[in-house]
Design a protein around this nucleic acid. Structure first.
Lengths: 179, 179
DNA sequence: GGTAATTAGTCGCATCTGCAACTATCTTAA
DNA sequence: TTAAGATAGTTGCAGATGCGACTAATTACC
């Protein structure tokens, strides 16, 4: 916890003022780096489930998760916004999932540019089989935190998401879709 | 905060037990997804600094940050372990940074397989110019959190890192390098 | 002392993904 | 009605990155 302090860091008025002559940046304490590393490690841990077991990549899993969570069909555009994934990436994932018959799509009669996506019976079965495993992995990853700490962590993530404009809850998304 | 509950989730004994028949997984509450999204958003915010301004990518910045933080030269292998980046990625970043004369390398006489990397004068200047900007960006990203919340967040990250075996502090790394 | 196993670093290959251009469709407004 | 602009989705392209094979050098072990 305590770190060997350089004289510049010994008595900073505020963290922000610590960037003095000769100061440095410790990657291990740099939040962006830590987030990146943590996210990629967590992704790798999960990829064992959906990747090795079921041959899915992250974009495919995101499509699956979005369709599995929602009751009604939705557009690829919606999935893209929702998961903050580029529409071309979603497009390719949709193509792959259709090829494997996990999802199907029907033309929207009201707007023939877009398609309504939904899980097939096979896709629903995959989702039902997959998501409990992933929730369990999530629990394993969070195993080092107490119940209260998990709540705190979720709350802090929410705050960061909010200040980065990432806060789109499933309800907001629903509202947007339903208009 | 409150979510439209399906009957299955109305009275779960514990979170872990919530994966019942008909239960679902809300991506927006799924920590791995949130971490991924947050990390990529934060990366994009930082890339404005080192990317657009200085033409660096993440691996290059990691090499720069590692060499800038340490007093003495170190090997590419060390940088790779330290930053948890694949050695081929580091190798390419090193090549690029050498081409632009931000770093230099000398053969290690004791082990002629490896090179000791260090910043050139020009590289040091870049580092000195860059890292305060990045620390400031970090502060902007954390602006939504109070001082106490930032401490809590850092602590929670540490715990997660520890339980994922990511906990390699700069001190440990030093010790390993120095042997 | 010599052979096998290990390690640092490089590179080709395959994959992934963001960007931007493109088609088709819809909307707006003159 | 028609033309201009916006939007859904697809695709070619290029850059980034992980993997694994490879070289060269070192260490371990018999």
């Amino acid at each position: 916890m305590a770190k060997a302090m350089s004289s510049e860091q010994a008595a900073p008025i505020r963290e922000e003022a610590a960037a003095k002559k000769g100061a440095r940046l410790d990657l291990f304490k740099f939040v962006p780096f830590r987030l990146n590393r943590l996210a990629s490690e967590v992704s790798n841990a999960l990829a064992v489930e959906y990747g090795e077991r079921y041959g899915l990549d992250i974009p495919s899993w995101r499509v699956l998760a979005t369709l599995g969570f929602r009751k009604d069909a939705c557009s690829a555009q919606y999935v893209a916004e929702c998961t903050r994934t580029h529409k071309s990436t979603i497009s390719r994932a949709v193509t792959a999932l259709m090829k494997r018959q996990f999802i199907e799509r029907v033309e929207n009669e009201d707007d023939r540019r877009e398609f309504r996506l939904r899980l097939t019976r096979k896709g629903r079965a995959l989702y039902e089989e997959l998501f409990p495993r992933l929730l369990q992995r999530e629990q394993e990853i969070l195993a080092g935190l107490s119940t209260q700490e998990r709540r705190d962590f979720a709350m802090l993530l929410s705050k960061l998401e909010a200040s980065l404009g990432l806060l789109q809850t499933s309800e907001e998304a629903d509202a947007k879709e339903a208009y």
